[in-house]
Design a protein around this nucleic acid. Structure first.
Length: 464
RNA sequence: GUGGCUAUAGUACAACGGUUAGUACAUCGGGUUGUGGUCCCGGUGACGAGGGUUCGAUUCCCUCUAGCCACCCCA
């Protein structure tokens, strides 16, 4: 570098100045044309389902007071303590970009006095969430969730219905999923259970085997000992007491009812005693939706070992959505005691899954007509014709910014036009127009006034 | 936040301690000045950033940044 010629250095410096480009912030992404098709497919499915089940669309601000999340999700949860975008705004308020949807929805429920509405109140929400995490595929700092919440309904039917909707969502998108479900009990029986769990881990030698993180967890949040993935920790855990055995009567009944509904609805689930979710507000039912890998039905040659491996892997990642019941949160946030439950599904992860599985998109290729023109006069006339046709309900396209016929037909071809209407000087004088079948390449000169009749004839006969 | 792998045109990939960094697709123009989807010809376009080793670095080393993967956690 020391002997680089002056010229070279200058060149480099000039280049640097010229070509410094902006790039996305880490973990953020643009959704371009191709991806947008998936985006629409998935969000439309979400919206359709939500409406069908009687959920009302609602939006909330992306920015809220930071302590809304600290109080509801829990100050010590990772989502809040490590990943939240928190800052002080110009008026000195401590605010945060929402890291999850539920707290804002609870706030809205209380703030607008929705306990005076007929219960339950059911929200459908679709929006961006922000978490400052280390990105990898399916994990972004801004991601989008489809969220359903139901306030004012304590019955296990509500839990089951939530799970049903989530399940249908994936099923109708042709994604195979399994529901992991567990109960965290209520305040009382969970406390009992945690004591039992602590006692269990206190028994000789067990703590020594745990990983560093779990040693910490033992002190801060013993429940989380249950979902550690370390081999040793899992081994110790095998013998651990399970919460299902310690639920109080009400909580046990609730769980059983939920499971009965699921059985009746034929929803495959896995009662997973180790499922513990990372937010403080959950009680009773918690569930998670995980992708089921592979085409288990089709595989006949069965390589059981390999299958096991992928299954193992899937349990680790591939959480596509999750949720549960949070009966105490509304009250804790200053509202009336209101039972509630909900779930969220990560849109980006769903899209990733759809792409991965090569699930074909429905083509919405309806026939359309391309208008091509040559010369200023013709252009003006076509400009007007375009508007007339559009208003009359034809699907039309154009490239009026291009003058060359070649380029225009290239564009028509690229777009996949069924017919092109071509108007030039000659036709203008004769009062005719050329209609070209883009598939066969044959074309015909017709009376300009008969465009409508001719198109209708062609499009109709094709419809049969 | 921790660890591993990676970084070359818009995209997917080559090559090289030394003179002009290749190929395909895409893009733009021409062959065809009034006709697309085939073909032919041509143009534009890249070594992520900074530093070090070296006579010379896109190539080797370090740092940063970004992406992927694993962990933590989650969607």
């Amino acid at each position: 570098m020391s002997r680089k010629s002056k010229e070279e250095k200058d060149k480099k410096a000039e280049k640097r100045g010229k070509e410094r480009r902006y790039s996305r912030l880490r973990g953020m992404r643009d959704i371009l044309f191709d991806e947008y098709k998936y985006w629409e497919l998935v969000t439309r499915k979400a919206r359709d389902l939500a409406v069908l089940y009687g959920f009302q669309p609602i939006e909330t601000p992306a920015l809220e007071k930071a302590d809304l999340y600290e109080r509801s999700s829990g100050k010590n949860t990772d989502v809040v303590s490590k990943e939240m975008y928190t800052f002080t705004d110009k008026s000195g308020d401590r605010v945060a970009l929402r890291p999850e949807a539920t707290p804002g929805l609870v706030r809205a429920y209380i703030e607008h006095g929705m306990f005076n509405l007929p219960q339950p109140v059911k929200f459908f929400w679709l929006g961006s969430l922000f978490r400052h995490e280390k990105p990898q595929s399916g994990r972004y700092r801004q991601h989008t969730q489809f969220d359903l919440e139901m306030f004012g309904e304590a019955s296990p039917v509500a839990d089951a219905q939530m799970i049903l909707i989530a399940y249908n969502f994936f099923k109708e998108l042709q994604i195979k999923v399994q529901i992991q479900i567990n109960s965290l009990g209520c305040k009382e029986c969970r406390a009992d259970y945690i004591n039992k769990l602590i006692e269990f881990y206190k028994e000789r030698g067990k703590r020594a085997k745990l990983c560093i993180d779990c040693k910490k967890r033992f002190a801060t949040n013993p429940l989380r000992l249950l979902d550690c993935k370390e081999e040793e920790c899992a081994k110790v855990r095998e013998e651990a007491p399970q919460i299902v055995d310690f639920l109080c009567n009400d909580c046990r009944d609730h769980l059983i009812k939920v499971l009965e509904y699921l059985d009746e609805l034929d929803i495959p689930y896995n009662l997973n005693p180790f499922l513990v979710r990372g937010l403080d507000y959950y009680n009773r039912t918690v569930f998670e939706v995980t992708a089921v890998e592979g085409d288990e039905e089709e595989s006949e040659d069965g390589a059981p070992e390999k299958k096991k491996e992928t299954e193992e892997k899937d349990k680790r990642q591939a959480s596509l959505g999750g949720g549960g019941r949070y009966d105490r949160l509304v009250e804790a946030m200053g509202g009336r005691p209101t039972p509630a439950c909900g779930f969220g599904i990560g849109i980006e992860r769903v899209i990733l899954k759809i792409k991965e599985k090569n699930i074909p998109l429905k083509k919405d290729q309806e026939d359309f007509i391309f208008l091509a023109q040559l010369g200023e006069q013709a252009k003006r006339k076509m400009f007007i014709l375009f508007e007339e046709m559009r208003k009359a309900g034809y699907r039309v396209r154009q490239a009026f910014t291009k003058d060359s016929l070649k380029v225009q037909l290239e564009e028509a071809n690229r777009l996949g036009a069924k017919y092109s209407l071509i108007l030039g000087q000659k036709e203008l004088i004769d009062g005719t127009i050329i209609i070209r079948d883009m598939e066969s390449g044959t074309q015909e000169m017709i009376d300009y006034k008969k465009i409508g009749a001719e198109l209708n004839r062609r499009l109709e006969s094709k419809d049969e």
